[in-house]
Design a protein around this nucleic acid. Structure first.
Lengths: 109, 109
DNA sequence: TGAACATATGAACAGTTATTCATATGTTGC
DNA sequence: GCAACATATGAATAACTGTTCATATGTTCA
């Protein structure tokens, strides 16, 4: 006996979000798909921190951290404020936390 | 006046999940960070579908779809059942939906 | 202004990844 | 067994990505 499967191509096609949104969504997840960036975000869960300290804490070069923060900034996942020579980064909002919690649930299934 | 920022390296370090979990988490998000895979998952939101139909629907080669399904299978995000020559894929559980909804919220902020 | 420091950025390189092509595996019906 | 079909898979290639190195920008203080 045959189970039900999708034959209505047009119906399914219509249910798909538009390409732009699918692209944006993939771009967002791509950002979480790197351990350095994930670590940076986890650090910022604890509060704000300057670039050099993040670099030291993760044993990564200052340049690498800066490059990654640029990406996080570009996606509006983090904010920053300058205080003299130092720049402190922090989470932009609570979305990051939610997204990471979502993924963590699957991992710890 | 100085705002509060993190100085307690050891404290923050202790708050970080272990490397293995951070790695797994990044690997999971990496999977969602590709438009073809996101589209496949969205299709499966509607129900189960065979490989060739997915390929046609997305205008991607059968081989490409199969390769991507392999990755999705590997992360236990999709299931499959064989019916004769045909293999039908479907979502493994509701985690996928939750994770994607989480990301969508940030996009539509 | 100039030295010292913190961060940002461009170019180059190495490693990774998605697709394609060719082909193998697996299933059905003759 | 064999032809036809559906799917899976390995190798090769092109595109993308993260890090490093060198250097630029920006800030402070003397």
């Amino acid at each position: 006996m045959t189970e039900q499967h999708l034959d209505d191509f047009e119906g399914v096609k219509a249910a798909l979000p538009d390409d732009e949104m699918l692209y944006d969504l993939a771009e967002l997840y791509k950002i979480f798909g790197d351990t350095t960036r994930i670590k940076l975000l986890y650090i910022l869960f604890e509060g704000e921190m300057c670039v050099q300290h993040m670099a030291e804490l993760l044993s990564v070069s200052q340049s690498a951290v800066s490059h990654q923060l640029r990406i996080l900034k570009g996606s509006r996942l983090v904010r920053y404020r300058r205080e003299g020579k130092t720049v402190y980064y922090s989470l932009a909002d609570d979305h990051v936390r939610q997204i990471i919690e979502c993924g963590t649930e699957h991992i710890n299934e």
